[in-house]
Amino acid sequence: MLASLQSRLYDLVRRDTFLPRFHFLAIGLLGIMLLLLPQLTGLVLVGLFTRIFVLAVFGMSYDLLRGYAGIINLGHALFFGGGTYIAGIVFANYGTSPTMLGLAVLGTTAYAMLAALLMGKIAFRRGNVVACAMITLALGEIVRQIAESWRAVTHGADGLTFPIPMMFRDRVALYYYALAFMVIMMLALRQFIMSPTGRVLLAIRENEQRAIFLGYNTASYKLVALQVAGVVCGWSGVMFALTSRFANTELLTVQQTLNALLVTIVGGTGTLYGAIVGTAFVQLAQHTLLGLRGVHLIFERWLLFFGAIYVFVVLFMPTGIVGLYQRLISHWLKPVKPR
């Protein structure tokens, strides 16, 4: 029975990683295009893509929870905003030397691990999705409220403006750093999912009861997933600090968490790269719609479209863009089955 479960899990992982041969070609072309992009276009698009890279890591960290461990964490923004704030506070008060960048990253890591530990201990206590969603939402709100009321350090609702280290001030350089950051984080998360721990997480998502019967302490595995997702998310927050040079409490709101949730759903949950596709789609859609605000003022109401996309995708496209694509591919191209 264990063997059959393992082989089913193997199939799941294989399906996630399975790419027809021409995908490598497509990804290669995309990679070259992304490397050349700053030479070909203006700073607006470079900035937009830098954002996409950073937010895609935020989305992937969320996908690890939602798509692999089956956790709906509605307080995920506390890791992201926390990273941005920690970096901002360090740069604003202690200078922008490389040492300080290291300190910001270390501080964010420690904060994210501690926050994930506390969050997991409280939220996984009840052991179901609904309770977890409610509790994480409340915890996220608490962090936002603390940031809002701790004005001496965070400047409250006004937001915190800060300088960034020299090496990141060039927009084009920052673009490449962000691209590298995204690729490295994606490979690292992939590695984590392929590890024995990652497979147990898949088992928990598919059938938590069965995983418990097999003798796994599922709560502690979920805690590990939350720790990993939290730390990666915190780092993406630090990267975000480098792109925005500004932090405000918006970064800690439920809306910020929902941004990550939306990109994983739009892209396709449980695939990691779905989060990248989703982030690119959502950011480009937002950029385009805001560009249309001259046509009609309704296009300024991004949240209206945001929510509508949300409901539409959940109701009619539950597997997201990647899932839709895979269905079309398997329908038309009949790829070689793995194994």
């Binding site: 709906i72 999705v129 609904v130 969603a133 809306q255 929902l258 949730l261 759903i265 109401r301 949240l303 209206l304 945001f306 929510g307 509508a308 949300y310 409901v311 959940v314 109701l315 539950p318």
Partner: peptide, 24 residues
Amino acid sequence: RPAYGKVTAQILITLGLMIVFTDL
């Protein structure tokens, strides 16, 4: 109604409604 029995989908749909109607 279309999502009864699908806990996650219900959470997500009602979240979407919350966003739309708050912004409305």
